[in-house]
Design a protein around this nucleic acid. Sequence first.
DNA 1: GTGAAAGCGCTAACAC
DNA 2: GTGTTAGCGCTTTCAC
Lengths: 341, 341
Amino acid sequence: MSEDRATRGSVRTITDLARLAGVSPGTVSRALAGKSLVNTKTREKIEAIAREHGFRPNQMASGLRRQKTGVIGVVIPLGHDTRQQISDTFFMTLLGFLADELTLEGYDLMLRRVVPKDDADWLDRFIGSGMIDGVIVIGQSDQFDRIEDVADGYGPMVVWGNHAEGQRHCVVGTDNRLGGRLAAERLIAAGARRLAFLGDTTAIEFAARFAGAQDVAQRMGLAPIIELPTHLSPERASDEIARHLDAVKGRVDGIFAATDTLAALCLTALRTRGVAVPDDIRLIGFDDLPIASHTVPPLTTVKQDIAAGARGLVDLLLRRLAGEQTESLVLPPQLVVRQTA
Amino acid sequence: MSEDRATRGSVRTITDLARLAGVSPGTVSRALAGKSLVNTKTREKIEAIAREHGFRPNQMASGLRRQKTGVIGVVIPLGHDTRQQISDTFFMTLLGFLADELTLEGYDLMLRRVVPKDDADWLDRFIGSGMIDGVIVIGQSDQFDRIEDVADGYGPMVVWGNHAEGQRHCVVGTDNRLGGRLAAERLIAAGARRLAFLGDTTAIEFAARFAGAQDVAQRMGLAPIIELPTHLSPERASDEIARHLDAVKGRVDGIFAATDTLAALCLTALRTRGVAVPDDIRLIGFDDLPIASHTVPPLTTVKQDIAAGARGLVDLLLRRLAGEQTESLVLPPQLVVRQTA
DNA sequence: GTGAAAGCGCTAACAC
DNA sequence: GTGTTAGCGCTTTCAC
C-alpha cells in the first residue's frame, strides 16, 4: 500500500507502462483490457507493473476512442417545485437503488439536477454532452412534452413516471391511476364519503392518482373530490396544509395525500387541530416510505415497489443500449392497510 | 424545436460545424468557448449554426485535451453497514445539497457507491479513473486510514466526517463530540441518570458522539453510558432496538440515539412497550431530519446544518482545486429541544 | 502474439 | 482574427 504511494506518478500512461515492460502500448492496452490473446507471461508482467505503480487507464481517453463512456446520466427535473425537490425521499431512495443497479452492471452514474424553467434545453444538453451513454430521467415533472420530443431522436433513454396511452418515450412507473382507485376505495370502505386530494395535480403522476380516485368517487355517486394543491417540500407544504384543513373544516371526512410525506404532515396538522384519525377523518398516503410505518397512528398507504422500479429502469436502459426496442413497464401498486384508514 | 430534431445528427463535430461556417475548427472552438477574440460576425454565425443543429462540443474530447473534466466525484463508502446505507436520509439530503452547490459552480457530479470490504482499492480507483477533477467522500465509515493514505498524494479531496487531532485529510463535519455533550446534558437536565447510547460506535462519527456523552456522564459522576449497537438500516435496526430495550428494561432512563432515524424507531418500540416518553425514558436524537419534528411526541435532537456542510465541502474543494491549502471545517451542532427530553 | 500507425473530437500554441 | 498543427491517452485495424 505505502509503496503504491511512493512510486505513484511515474507511470501515468499506457505508454509509460509499455516502456517499463519493454512492449508496445498496444500490447499493454490489450493486456489490461483482458481481451484478445496476449502471451500469459507478458500479461502477467504488465499486470504486475500496473499494480506496483497503481496505474489505471484513463477512462476519458478510452471513452473518446471507443465512443462510449461507461457512464449513465441520471437527471432529476425540478419542474413544478423548484427548491430542493431533489431531497424528496422517494426520488432519493430510487436514486440509491439506481446507483446499486448501475454499479452492478459496471456503469458509473452521473447525477444532474436541472430546473427546466431556467434551462429549456436541459435534456438535449445532457444527452449531447458526450459524457454519457444513456440517460435515466427521474420524474416527468411538467416536462412530458419535452421528453416526448427527445424520445424520437434518442434511443437510450428511460424515464421514471406515468404511462399515458400512445406515448413515445419508454417509461417505468407505478400504475398511478390504479393506485388512486385503491386509495379512494379504501377511504370509502373505511367510511369516508366526502373526499379530498392533497397535492399538486400539475405533476402528471399526481394527476393520474387524482383521476383514479375521481373514477371511484363518480362510480360510487359521491361528490367530486376536492383538490387541495400543495408544494412538495415540507416547509412550504405544512402551511398550505394547515390553511387547506381550516378551509374545508367539516366538509371532508377522507383525505388522499399524493405522497406519504404529505400524509405525515397532514396527520400532524390534524392532530394539532384535535381531529381524530381515522374516526373524524380517514387518511391515506402513497409510496409506503419508511416514515409510513412510524407515524402515529401508522399510515395506511399505497405502496410503490421502488427496488423493482430501479431494476426495471436499468434493465430497459441496457436493452435499449443494445439496440433493442422496449415497451414501457407498468408496476402494480399495492394497498397497505395500517391504521389511518 | 422540431427542426432541431430534423437536422440533428448532421453536425456531430466541431469540424463539421467549421465546414458549414466556412471557417477552421480552431475558430469554432474559440467561438464556442467564448474566450479569445473572435470576430463578432463570425462568432454569431457559428453560434447560429450550432443552435440550429443542436450542436454541443464533446466534453470527453475537451476534457482529454484540457486535462480536466468538469466533473466532481462523490463517493459513499459503505463500510460497517453494507446494505443500502446509501438510502440513509442524512447522506441523501447532503447529496442533494451537494448537487445544488456543484451545479451552481458549473461542475457535474459523478456518484459512486462502494463497498470497501469487497474493494480495498475503491478510492484510488476513483481518483485514478481520469474521469473526475476532484472527489468528495461522504462519510469516513471505517475507512479513516485508507483516506489518510490517499490524502498525502492527492490534493483535491474533501471528506464529510469527523475531525480528529492531527489528521491529514481535509474534513468538513459537525463537532460530534460537542454534539454528544449537548445530548447528554439535555438528557440529564430532563431528569435522566442512567444513560444508554443507541448506535454502532465503530463508525467514527458515532464514536465521537458517544465519547462526548461519556465525558458528561463522567463529569457528573453518573454510571458509564451503556452501548447498544445497531445497524443503520431501519429493517435490521428495529429488531435490534427491540432486543436492546428488553435487555436493559428498568436499568435505563435516558437514551441518546446516534441518529434521528434510530431515535424514531426507538420511540415506536418504546410506545409498543408502554414506556412513557419522556416520563419513563428521555430520548434524544441527532441530525434534526424532517422526521424529527413529526414523531409523536416530537423529537428533541441535536441539529447538524446540512446545507452549510455541503457549501463548506464544495467551497473547500474548489479552493484545493485552485491549489490552495485548506484547513478542516468544524461546524457547531445545535440543541433542538422538542418533547422527548 | 506483438508492433506500427491512424485516429476518437477537441484545444492551444504558434504562425501569419 | 484566423488557419495550421500537434497532440491529450487510449484502442484497434493491419501487418508481420
